[in-house]
Design a protein around this nucleic acid. Structure first.
Lengths: 305, 305
DNA sequence: CTGTTAGCGCATTCAA
DNA sequence: TTGAATGCGCTAACAG
């Protein structure tokens, strides 16, 4: 009959508020926004609510401020959906190991003490590189994300693994650091080719950079996939409509988000019955999606009319 | 000395919690994710925190549930960053007019009683259409978003205004409904050309659909911009790297988000001193960004080698 | 099993 | 100015 209980009093007496803190980054990218969408859905399903913080820099002071805000709010769990960057991640991890509130990380390197839900980026790196080799490309360059990101390092490690096995020399000339933006893919392609003109394929660490790398190639008079093979990473919904349609590594960020929330919920529930769960890492597997940008022998519909 | 006040007790005594509720939709799109990013930043700046709800359907029951959850949480303000859809928006607006909590809408039609922060979508529609006419295109089709969206209706109205003024007949044959996805742009282009083969330019209501419309055109053997001019909407960061680079309507979703939070804050502060602000609407202006996809006489670098 | 009561930890009021 | 008391509206422990 129009009566609603007072949350404030309820929170005070129960000593909890059913809020889960989520920290995110870079919502303009496919992975981040998909992860957040799924996290929100799952959190609602489990009758929590969600407080969101977005990070734009990676300095420990900002990270620390957000962490303490969340603890002050007395959230019941924290999902750290921010890229793991060398500059702060170990510091954060050790800080977190000393607090009570359960924390689950998305896309962070595995350790003894952290709960993590991550994509197997290194496998992704292997998949794309192997595919290009099988298509007959001889010298495969690599445009990375920022090198201080764990995800970048893993994708690069996957590429390196295959390329070393194939006996490549002077591997350093084949690598160029990007920053995920389309702009950096264009610049990156030019620099990479200047560095090592024999390159006949480029594995690009996300689809946005792959898009602009393809444009830059065309402008240099290189035909894709005949003169230059391109593979991207992510499989954003637009990738199939690029020119030419982009071969890429598909990841399912939804799986990462769902696993993270389930984990947090499990930790909270277990703690309710007095037991502490063991830290662990759940991996999500990427897959190869083959389209025209990497198929040398293709009778592509759009090629050269 | 390691002492932290208890938020629960603090909330209880003050009767408030400094939380602002944000409802969002479709974070995988440029506008939505940019708006949310800015909202989060501003909210933090003003020492509020943010609870996020994401909607995936538009039925009043889900909308109502979220609204009541937020009221039960006792949020101090609500930002409705969800598209205004015929099916629920009037119902919501009247519901909202009866609650105390201040609500600001993003991208909703103006009314007497609502606080709104909106892009002038109709102006955007005029800009793109006028540009295509000035470039000499004779019969300009239009691929819309879902027709029950306010934003769609406005963009369409802008196009219609110009096209009617130019004396077009059989306007219905020139319009095709899309759903914002790249997939629907492809389908849309085929259907549109089947409906009215004399079309020589298409204004597409977002950049994702414009991308796939360009691919579909190429596959039909139509050269862009010579056989078919294309203009998109949004100016996503990748649009400059499409093939060919996409002429589009630039919007600044950051402006919308910032205005909304400032408005909420102003309402809350005013109410603290006993005054109620007058509902109003703040408009954000879109702009035309000309690239190659609409320049018929262009000596395009990438055309036909 | 139902009804009563004692805090939860602060902010605010009141007395000193 | 400072210090002690009251109550915010529930939940949980307790007594009936």
């Amino acid at each position: 009959m129009g009566y609603a209980p007072n949350v404030f009093a309820n929170n005070l007496t129960r000593g909890q508020n059913n809020i889960i803190g989520v920290i995110g980054y870079g919502l303009n990218y496919f992975g981040s926004s998909s992860v957040l969408t799924v996290i929100e859905g799952k959190i609602n399903e489990l009758d929590f609510s969600l407080t969101l913080n977005l990070i734009d820099k990676f300095d420990p002071s900002q990270v620390e401020a957000i962490l303490y805000d969340l603890l002050a709010l007395r959230v019941e769990g924290i999902i750290w959906a921010v890229p793991a960057i060398d500059q702060y991640i170990d510091w954060l991890s050790s800080k977190v190991s000393r607090i009570q509130t359960p924390v689950v990380y998305i896309n962070k390197g595995p350790t003894e003490s952290d709960f993590v839900s991550a994509l197997d980026n290194q496998l992704g790196g292997r998949l794309g590189t192997t595919h290009l080799m099988q298509e007959g490309y001889q010298r495969i360059g690599f445009i990375t994300g920022p090198l201080n990101w764990w995800e970048t390092q893993q994708r690069l490690a996957g590429w390196r693994e295959i390329v070393v096995k194939a006996g490549y020399a002077n591997i350093e000339d084949l690598v160029l650091e990007g920053d995920w933006t389309a702009r950096s893919g264009e610049v990156g392609l030019h620099t990479l080719l200047a560095q090592e003109p024999r390159i006949d394929a480029v594995f690009v660490s996300n689809d946005q950079m792959a898009l602009s790398a393809m444009q830059a190639s065309r402008r240099l008079g290189l035909r894709i996939p005949d003169d230059l093979g391109i593979v991207g990473f992510d499989d954003i919904p637009e990738a199939a409509y690029f020119y030419p349609p982009l071969t890429t590594i598909r990841q399912d960020p939804r799986e990462l988000g769902a696993m993270a929330v389930e984990r947090i919920d499990a930790i909270i529930n277990a703690r309710g019955t007095g037991v502490d769960l063991e830290p662990n890492i759940s991996w999500s597997q990427p897959g190869l999606v083959v389209r025209e940008s990497s198929l040398r022998e293709s009778e592509s519909v759009n090629e050269t009319k």
